[in-house]
Each structure stands twice: as structure tokens, then as C-alpha cells.
């Protein structure tokens, strides 16, 4: 079984972002970048399937700046076999990302595509669903458990009410929740080995896909900052404040 994993390079989840003063976006200069956290879970799950002999090859794809090679290399250091970078300087919307990934799927013919359930930068939560729609494949979104059988997968989805269990025919697209697994740390020898693994760089123009944006960012503003209030001395004071000052209990 062949697996394709899509990963995105984003501002590290620990960084407090800053909005540019001209309101055109978020400042990315000299900011620590990392793999989007749920994408790491997607990589980990694919590698686990390879470790257990279910998968034969794990291919990692990313779309973006030259620097996304770092993100692909870190997936290869975790254990992925091969990388593909679709190179572009433009901001690509989820719909266009899905179209690009569809082209890669048609070329690579994987049995399953794994993605993170949402990117922590634009918080869209769309790409996996859109990709499975364009491929006319079934989808398993927000999964926290994955079982692979011969021609089907069984998944557990995290939903607002609890958990949902589905059985899905392959080929399929799944999007991963942070609770799916615990991504491994790459060892130094594996980081060195990853540098020698094959990584194809393809210019986005060569794919001849319409990536023109449909949604224009008019402005990006700093979120209003909530100010902390008072510290109370004890529980008694807290109750008094809630009852007579805030009047919420």
C-alpha cells in the first residue's frame, strides 16, 4: 500500500504572531517555522503503517516557498521515503491546494492520502474534504483512530457529541486529529539520512492548474487584546465579586 501525506509549513505553534502594521497580513520575517502540528500526526500515522508492514512507501508533498523543503526533510527524517515540493511564492487557497494535490494523486496513485485536519495559521479546515471531493473518494475527517484492512479502513472521528465510527472503502482521504498518535522525534542519524532521500521540486506553473484566488484578504488586524483584571485574595472574595460586581452567579 502506498501512502501520500500532505504537509504545510506554518509559524511555529509556540510563537505569538504579529500583524504587519500595514494590515496586509502576519509578519513572517525571522519567525520560527515548523510543520503544521496535525500534519505531523498524519506523517507519524503513515510511518507507523510502514513500520508495521502495511504500507510499502510513504511520499510527502508540500506546496509553497523553497523553504518548505525543510518541512519535507523533517517528515523524511521521521521516516518518509520521498518528497515532492510544488514550488510557489503565492498564497494558495485550500481549493487550489486540493486541485494541486489531486494532480499529485493522479500521478502517484496512492491508496490513501493523509492530511492534518486543519492548519493552525488560517484555521480553514477544508483541504482534505475538498481533495476527497475532487477525487470522488470517500473521506474520514478529524480521526483519532485508524485501522487498515485489505480494501477498507475503519476510523474513529472526533465529533462535537463524542465519537463516530465509520468503515470506508479505499482509496480514501483522511484528516488527522492531534489525538491520533504521538509524533516521534527524529534521531540525528535519521536527520542525516533524510538529507540524501529524493526530493522533487516542481514549479507550480508546470502543473497548469488554476490557482487564482477567489477570496481576497482586504485587511488583517490585530485581535483586540483582553486585559487581565484583579487578583482576588481568596474564594470568599471571588464569590462576592462574581455575585455583586460581575453579577454572573
Amino acid at each position: 500500500m502506498k501512502l501520500l501525506v500532505a504537509v504545510k509549513r506554518v509559524i511555529d505553534y509556540n510563537v505569538q504572531i504579529r500583524v504587519k502594521s500595514d494590515q496586509t497580513g502576519v509578519d513572517m520575517d525571522n519567525v520560527k517555522m515548523s510543520m503544521n502540528p496535525p500534519d505531523e500526526n498524519a506523517v507519524e500515522e503513515a510511518i507507523k503503517l510502514k513500520d508495521s508492514g502495511v504500507a510499502t512507501e510513504v511520499v510527502v508533498v508540500s506546496i509553497g516557498h523553497e523553504k518548505c523543503q525543510d518541512t519535507i526533510r523533517s517528515a523524511m527524517a521521521m521516516g518518509a521515503d520521498r518528497g515532492i515540493l510544488i514550488k510557489t511564492e503565492d498564497l494558495i487557497e485550500p481549493l487550489a491546494v486540493a486541485k494541486i494535490l489531486k494532480a499529485i494523486v493522479e500521478k502517484e496513485q496512492p491508496d490513501m492520502v493523509l492530511l492534518g485536519k486543519q492548519a493552525i495559521d488560517d484555521d480553514s479546515n477544508q483541504t482534505g474534504q475538498m481533495l476527497s471531493a475532487l477525487l470522488n473518494w470517500p473521506q474520514g475527517c478529524f480521526i483519532s483512530k485508524l485501522g487498515v484492512n485489505d480494501k477498507t479502513i475503519t476510523i474513529t472521528r472526533e465529533i462535537d457529541e463524542g465519537l463516530e465510527h465509520l468503515e470506508i472503502q479505499l482509496p480514501a482521504v483522511v484528516t488527522c486529529d492531534l489525538r491520533l498518535n504521538e509524533p516521534r522525534f527524529a534521531s540525528l542519524p535519521n536527520i542525516m539520512k533524510a538529507k540524501k532521500k529524493p526530493l522533487d521540486v516542481i514549479a507550480i506553473e508546470n502543473l497548469e492548474i488554476d490557482i487564482s484566488p477567489r477570496v481576497k484578504f482586504l485587511k488583517v488586524e490585530e485581535a483586540p487584546v483582553r486585559k487581565g483584571g484583579t487578583m482576588v485574595a481568596d474564594v470568599k472574595e471571588l464569590i462576592q465579586k462574581l455575585k455583586y460586581e460581575a453579577k454572573v452567579i
Partner: peptide
């Protein structure tokens, strides 16, 4: 719409 875990607020216009 809020982006970056609500740390930035984007105003977006759709042409669809």
C-alpha cells in the same frame, strides 16, 4: 473571520 487561533482578524471578500 479569525485566523491564527483568533490572534488576528481577517476581513475577506469572496468573488465566487
Amino acid at each position: 473571520r479569525p485566523i491564527y487561533a483568533g490572534n488576528a482578524i481577517a476581513t475577506v471578500q469572496s468573488s465566487d
